[in-house]
Design a binder for these strands. Structure first.
Length: 187
DNA sequence: TGGCCGATATGCT
DNA sequence: GCATATCGGCCAA
């Protein structure tokens, strides 16, 4: 991975991470879905100013957040010149699948990692990673050649935030079966 | 100090 | 498709 990669704007990092391989503790996964958050009205930098402050002041660190009291989602902070973060929404399991099956306890391998809180469990992550350098937590291989990526609106962000809701900042590999939701008819 | 609200997952209809 | 579990962060008072 190029040095300083996570210093790029969130949208750039999010798009390039689709197709990337992540390795950790004998497991390997392929990233198939990401979302970018910057200084927009859906970003925790705005909606959770205290805990989201990391998004403004750091890049290349693991940023975790808990939602609905139950679920934890995995992000990396980005952008050396402004607020930014990338949510890893879905990955495809490649290696270490048996360990993921044990942690998740689901019937179908398709359900192991097809959502942000699911992959957090499948990969055996924990809150000690919060705020630590991403490259200490994961070994990253970016795709050598550009992957076919499509972009559409982000998932699950609330109404009432205006046009920022429609920003096409969700990036997917439309061919993957592990998406958290199907790709729309986007470019 | 209380109430509201999530960048969700799951199981049931 | 829909209900709901469950709790920390945030802000109003």
């Amino acid at each position: 991975m190029p040095r300083g990669f996570f210093g790029n704007p969130a949208v750039v990092v999010a798009r390039r991470l689709v197709g990337a391989r992540l390795r950790r503790h004998g497991m390997e996964v392929r990233v198939v879905e990401t979302e970018a958050y910057a200084g927009d009205l859906a970003s925790h930098f705005v909606t959770r100013p205290r805990t989201g402050a990391m998004l403004g002041s750091t890049h290349g660190l693991v940023y975790l957040f808990r939602s609905y009291g139950l679920h934890t989602c995995l992000n990396v902070t980005t952008d050396r010149s402004g607020p930014g973060g990338v949510l890893i929404r879905a990955v495809e399991p490649l290696e270490g699948i048996e360990a993921m099956r044990v942690r998740r306890g689901v019937r179908r391998d398709l359900d192991l990692t097809n959502g942000p809180a699911k992959l957090y469990v499948a990969l055996g992550l924990d809150w000690s990673l919060h705020g630590t350098p991403w490259e200490e937590a994961f070994e990253v291989d970016l795709p050598r050649s550009p992957t076919a990526v499509r972009a559409g609106p982000r998932i699950g962000i609330g109404i009432g935030i205006g046009a920022d809701r429609d920003l096409p900042w969700r990036f997917v590999d439309p061919a993957s079966r592990w998406l958290s939701r199907p790709a729309g008819r986007w470019r």
